[in-house]
Nucleic acid binder design. Structure first.
Lengths: 159, 159
DNA sequence: TATTGTTATACTCTATAACTATA
DNA sequence: TATAGTTATAGAGTATAACAATA
């Protein structure tokens, strides 16, 4: 009774291969998956406080301190004072990192196109719809889990 | 010029959500993604030496030592001497973990079915073909990268 | 009193290198 | 001489808790 290989397994394999590819691409640089993720977030949302980054990336503020420390040391980001709140720090992409992120985005788009190109043209629309449906359903399931978890926590606190 | 959301992005999102779901499911247990991965490997391939696990999971033998230490302490696996090679150690799933893994496989299969169920029946065949094609192409790309890397290493050693 | 970021501490994952016991 | 696993060491990601400066 060997378990069947399912669509889900293939999706997870794609993600694993993708991460392997990234790791190889960034070997020899100070960029790690977590740091790269922070750079993507900065590229997408613009200069942000560390607190905002922690919230959006769903990690602890302490964790952001470490990631920003490393990225700042590598010249990828800069820290500057918040104009009105002297407790806060604004993290921005360094000028060179902006060009770097544009390259990353271009490479990512090219890879996406390359992979979609491997799919039979007649299958592409259904593939897109199908993946969208799977992502949507999984989002629902995870959200339901989260709410159940929060409810349990609230009960525990209330006791 | 906001980057488009692509099939690849959706695939990566699915993987991220899946991992989030796993993390939630294993909260409060000593099971982490790496340890769970080792358990899956043992369930799939049967009792194995640590060296074999290191090779198949593509991590260092030292890393396996730590993972097996934790899993052994948690009662998930047992270490026993190799029958003919006194250097080697055989790692096996503990009896309780065998039942546990059957449950995991069942849950995984149910989740896969649930997600495929969210896809319009008419789209399913094309989805399967499409995801297979993407995984295949990405496998090729990563393999090509690997070989280029090895060639470069060989040149460096030869110098 | 609440919030922002940091220091302190701890655990996990991971790797390389040196070492022990065995092959 | 080569291999299996461990000890030693180190860097990275992550979390919580305590604390300083500011709101």
């Amino acid at each position: 009774m060997t378990p069947e290989i399912t669509v889900l397994d293939r999706l997870l394999e794609v993600s694993e291969l993708f991460q392997k590819d990234m790791a190889r691409a960034f070997a020899g640089t100070p960029l790690t998956p977590s740091r790269t993720r922070l750079l993507w977030e900065l590229a997408a949302s613009g200069p942000s406080t560390q607190h905002a980054l922690a919230t959006r990336l769903e990690v602890s503020p302490r964790n952001i301190t470490g990631l920003v420390d490393a990225l700042e040391a590598g010249g990828y980001v800069t820290r500057s004072p918040h104009p009105s709140d002297r407790r806060a720090i604004i993290v921005s992409l360094a000028a060179s990192a902006q060009a770097f992120m544009r390259d990353m985005q271009r490479d990512h788009a090219e890879l996406s196109a390359e992979l979609l190109g491997a799919v039979a043209p007649a299958d592409r629309a259904a593939l897109l719809r199908g993946v969208e449906a799977i992502a949507g359903r999984l989002r629902e399931l995870v959200e339901a889990e989260e709410q159940r978890g929060e409810a349990a926590e609230a009960r525990a606190v209330g006791e």
